[in-house]
C-alpha cells in the first residue's frame, strides 16, 4: 500500500516536471517567432505613434486656444466674425470651391487622331499628383475633387459630369510646392515613360512642364461631383 502511494507521488512529480519543461520548450518556440525584423517593425511603429501623439497634442492645444479666443472675442465684441469668415474661406479653398492660382505644372496628353485617350491614363496622373502632394488639380479646367469621376463612355471621357472628346488632347494642371519641383518632375517623368512603354500602341505624346502661374478653377456647390443631395440629409 505504502509502495503504491509512493509510486503515485513519484508519477505525479515526474509528470509535473515534464509539464514545466514542455511549457518552457513551447516558450522557446514562441521566442523563435520574434525576429530582428519584427522588432524593427515594432520600433518603427513606436516612432510613428510618438510623432502622431506629439502632433495631436499640439493640435488639441491649438484648438483649445482657438475656442478660447473665439469666446473672448465674442465677449469683448472684437473681430470674431473676421476670424470665422477667414476660417470659412480656408475650408472653401480646401473643398475646391474657390478659384486658385500659383506655381504649378501642366501635363498635356495627346494621341494620334485614330487613337482615343484612355481614362485610366488620366486617373493615373491624377493619383500620382495627389500622392506627390499637389494641392489643386484640374483636367481640361475641371477641378478635381475627392468624388470627381473620370470615366470613359464611348468616344468621350466624362469628368465632373461633362463630356470631353477622347480624340482631343487633355490638359492636366496642378499647383505644387515650388520647393518640390525637381521631385515632381523626376517622378512624373518616370510615370510618363511607364505609360508610353506599357501602352506603346497608343503612341501617346505626353508633355510635362512647370508654369510660373497656373490657375485652377473652382467647382460649384451644385456640381455632380459633390452630390450634395446625398450628403446633406445624412450629416450627423
Amino acid at each position: 500500500m505504502k509502495i503504491n502511494a509512493m509510486r503515485s507521488i513519484a508519477f505525479t512529480i515526474i509528470c509535473m516536471i515534464l509539464g514545466i519543461l514542455i511549457a518552457l520548450q513551447m516558450k522557446n518556440v514562441n521566442a523563435d517567432n520574434v525576429t530582428e525584423q519584427k522588432l524593427e517593425e515594432l520600433y518603427n511603429n513606436i516612432v510613428e505613434y510618438s510623432r502622431k501623439n506629439e502632433e495631436l497634442s499640439k493640435r488639441n492645444a491649438e484648438l483649445y486656444s482657438y475656442i478660447e479666443l473665439l469666446e473672448q472675442d465674442y465677449a469683448s465684441g472684437n473681430a470674431y466674425i473676421e476670424t470665422i469668415i477667414k476660417e470659412r474661406e480656408r475650408a472653401a479653398v480646401f473643398a475646391g470651391l474657390r478659384e486658385v492660382s500659383n506655381f504649378g505644372l501642366t501635363i498635356r496628353i495627346s494621341a494620334p487622331p485614330e487613337v482615343m485617350v484612355r481614362d485610366s491614363v488620366l486617373r493615373q496622373f491624377v493619383n500620382e499628383l495627389r500622392a506627390l502632394g499637389a494641392q489643386a488639380i484640374s483636367i481640361n479646367d475641371e477641378r478635381m475633387v475627392a468624388m470627381s469621376e473620370i470615366r470613359a463612355s464611348n468616344q468621350d471621357i466624362i469628368i465632373n459630369g461633362k463630356n470631353y472628346d477622347r480624340r482631343n488632347a487633355f490638359e492636366i494642371k496642378a499647383i505644387i510646392d515650388p520647393g518640390k519641383e525637381a521631385y515632381f518632375l523626376d517622378y512624373l517623368d518616370k510615370v510618363r515613360v511607364s505609360v508610353q512603354t506599357d501602352l506603346s500602341a497608343d503612341q501617346y505624346d505626353i508633355a510635362i512642364q512647370t508654369v510660373d502661374n497656373v490657375t485652377i478653377p473652382a467647382l460649384k456647390e451644385d456640381s455632380i461631383a459633390f452630390k450634395i443631395d446625398l450628403l446633406l440629409p445624412s450629416v450627423q
Binding site: 493640435r59 479653398v93 474657390r98 478659384e99 486658385v100 494641392q135
Partner: peptide
C-alpha cells in the same frame, strides 16, 4: 480637419466668392 492648412498653403485665391 483642424490641420488642413498644410495641404493648401500654396493656393492663392483668385476670386473670392464674397
Amino acid at each position: 480637419a483642424d490641420n488642413f492648412e498644410q495641404y493648401i498653403n500654396q493656393l492663392e485665391v483668385v476670386k473670392n466668392e464674397d
